[in-house]
Deep mutational scan, measured.
Amino acid sequence: VSEWTEYKTADGKTYYYNNRTWESTWEKPQ
């Protein structure tokens, strides 16, 4: 699942961004 990158927002929430599909999600990808 290497295309997903984990980021943190300014208020400390974690989200995930897909470099291949430009998708972002709050849930941890499978």
Results as ranks from 00 to 15, higher is better:
K8F: 10
D11H: 04
T14C: 00
T25Y: 13
A10K: 09
R20Q: 15
K28F: 09
D11L: 05
K28H: 09
T5R: 08
N19S: 12
W4V: 03
E6S: 03
W26Q: 10
K8V: 14
S2F: 10
W26G: 08
E23Y: 06
W22M: 15
N18Q: 02
E23G: 01
T14K: 08
T5V: 15
E27I: 09
K13H: 09
Y15F: 13
N18F: 03
E27H: 08
K13I: 09
S24N: 05
P29F: 05
P29G: 08
V1A: 13
Q30D: 14
E3P: 07
Y17W: 13
E6Q: 06
Y17K: 09
T14S: 10
T25M: 12
A10D: 08
Y16E: 03
E3W: 05
K13V: 10
D11G: 09
W4Y: 04
N19V: 11
T21K: 00
E27W: 08
W26I: 09
T21R: 05
W22F: 15
K28R: 08
N19L: 10
N19E: 15
S24Q: 11
T9M: 04
E6R: 01
T5Y: 11
Y15V: 09
E6K: 03
Y15K: 08
Y17E: 08
K28L: 12
Q30E: 14
D11K: 03
E3Y: 06
W22E: 15
R20G: 13
T21H: 05
Q30W: 11
E3R: 02
T25L: 11
E27M: 04
Y16L: 01
G12T: 00
Q30F: 11
W4D: 02
N18W: 02
Y7L: 13
T5N: 05
T25R: 09
G12M: 00
Y7M: 14
T14E: 05
D11T: 10
K13P: 00
Y15R: 05
T5Q: 12
A10Q: 11
Q30G: 12
Y16R: 00
Y16I: 00
N18I: 00
P29W: 06
E23R: 00
W22Y: 15
W26P: 09
N19K: 09
K8I: 13
T9H: 03
E27Y: 07
A10Y: 04
Q30K: 10
N18H: 11
P29D: 05
W4S: 01
Y16Q: 05
P29R: 01
D11Y: 05
Q30A: 14
W22T: 14
W22I: 08
S2Q: 11
T5L: 10
T21W: 08
Y7S: 10
W4P: 01
Q30R: 06
T21P: 02
S2H: 11
R20P: 07
Y17Q: 07
T21I: 05
K28D: 12
K28P: 14
Q30H: 13
